[in-house]
């Protein structure tokens, strides 16, 4: 049953991700954004299968709820109609696909040939919110604080960038 769900969500994730990147029917950025939302939601499904419930919720809350809405907001602010009519750069696409396929082959081969890690195929961890929180505020408290400063800096930067007269 779980395996079935894994294959379902993995298929959905990859299909939607493909449609983000190369949708044969539309080159509208809004379509890409909507398929990215679907990718993220199916990835949240994969997280649930990995027993990372907190991460699944955060994934939907932060990515689908905030980041993608920001994307849509910006896409709508910019007038991108003209962009859709551009030709593809054929040479670039072909070489890109070839090189990416090579990289993918290397990845997959590396994954299957590497020695199996310790707890292979016997998942031990029961993902829970409480231990995660404890870990976050004990072992990782310094990165956590630095991250909050990073967010503050990003916020100030964005406000500065959004000012009309950029100096």
């Amino acid at each position: 049953m779980q395996d079935l769900f894994f294959y379902l969500f993995a298929f959905l994730t990859l299909l939607c991700a493909f449609l983000v990147v190369a949708n044969p029917f539309s080159r509208d950025p809004v379509t890409s954004a909507m398929f990215l939302v679907l990718t993220i939601v199916s990835m949240a499904g994969l997280f649930v299968l990995l027993h990372a419930f907190f991460l699944a919720a955060v994934q939907i809350l932060v990515y689908a709820g905030a980041v993608m809405v920001l994307f849509l907001f910006v896409i709508m602010l910019l007038d991108l109609k003209e962009e859709q009519r551009r030709r593809f750069n054929g040479f670039g696409v072909v070489t890109g696909v070839i090189s990416i396929a090579a990289i993918a082959a290397i990845f997959v081969k590396a994954i299957f040939e590497s020695p199996a890690p310790g707890g292979d195929a016997t998942p031990t961890l029961e993902g829970a919110t409480k231990p995660l929180g404890r870990m976050l505020f004990n072992d990782y408290v310094l990165p956590f604080e630095i991250l909050s400063v990073l967010l503050l800096v990003a916020m100030v930067g964005v406000i500065l960038l959004s000012k009309k007269d950029l100096k």
Binding site: V30, M34, V37, F53, F54, A56, A57, V58, I60, L61, A64, G65, A66, V69, L72, F73, M76, A128, T129
Partner: peptide
């Protein structure tokens, strides 16, 4: 009966905006 019930709720609520944004678009 989820252990992350409230986070789930906020996640789903935040998806509600898409209907309106897409309608506008």
């Amino acid at each position: 009966d989820l252990d992350v019930g409230i986070l789930y709720t906020f996640g789903i609520v935040s998806l509600g905006v898409y209907g309106i944004v897409l309608a506008g678009y």
